[in-house]
Amino acid sequence: MNIWVDADACPVVIKEILFRAAQRVGVHTTLIANMSIPVPPSAYLHSVQVSSGFDVADQEIVKRCDAGDIVITSDIPLADEAISKGAHVLSPRGEVMTKDNIRQRLNMRDFMDTLRASGVQSGGPAPLGNRDKMNFANELDKLLTVYQRKQKAKGTK
């Protein structure tokens, strides 16, 4: 299993949670962005800079992720593609996106785009709060616990 991070808009505090988790569990975590993203020195932490352009980082994540991997993103179309490949998707707010809820999220995203295009000001998302950070850490821990159990059953790390 690998963790793929849509790092262009991922909050620093979420990256820090991911860095600690990657070290603790020994899971390769790659931040993909169209700018250089520094990561602490570690065999488990990687950063990939892609060329700038619309959805270039998203396309790179979709290309690299496999079934059973974890994708960290708040981008709904990216989440949909990752889910289609069998990946687990978690937003930086700790929201788990699945086959069962991604269609509703896509519909809401499209509706909000239509409203904004017609001039309605919807505002952005609320700032990341302590509850969001805790939800993210808890949901990530659940996914990593399943991974660790599978690794233990195989007799590997």
Rank of each mutant, 00 (worst) to 15 (best):
W4N: 06
W4G: 04
A7R: 02
A7Y: 02
A7V: 05
A9I: 05
P11S: 09
V12A: 14
K15W: 00
R20F: 00
A22V: 05
A22S: 15
Q23N: 12
G26I: 04
A33I: 06
S36A: 12
V39D: 05
P41M: 02
P41A: 10
S42K: 06
L45I: 10
S47W: 02
S47E: 06
V48P: 03
Q49E: 14
V50R: 08
G53W: 05
D55R: 11
V56C: 03
Q59A: 14
E60R: 13
V62K: 06
V62F: 03
C65P: 02
D66E: 12
D69Q: 05
I70Y: 04
I72G: 02
D75C: 07
P77D: 09
D80P: 00
D80K: 13
E81N: 07
A82K: 00
S84T: 08
K85R: 15
G86P: 06
H88Y: 13
H88F: 13
V89S: 01
P92Y: 06
G94F: 01
E95M: 13
M97S: 05
N101L: 05
N101H: 04
R103D: 15
R103H: 14
R105T: 02
N107T: 08
D110C: 02
F111Y: 15
F111L: 15
D113A: 14
L115S: 04
A117H: 09
S118R: 14
S118I: 01
V120M: 09
Q121S: 15
G123L: 08
G123T: 06
G123D: 08
A126G: 09
A126L: 12
P127I: 07
N130M: 11
D132R: 01
K133E: 10
K133Q: 13
M134K: 14
N135Q: 13
E139R: 15
E139H: 14
L140Q: 10
K142V: 13
T145V: 11
T145C: 04
V146L: 11
G155D: 10
K157G: 10
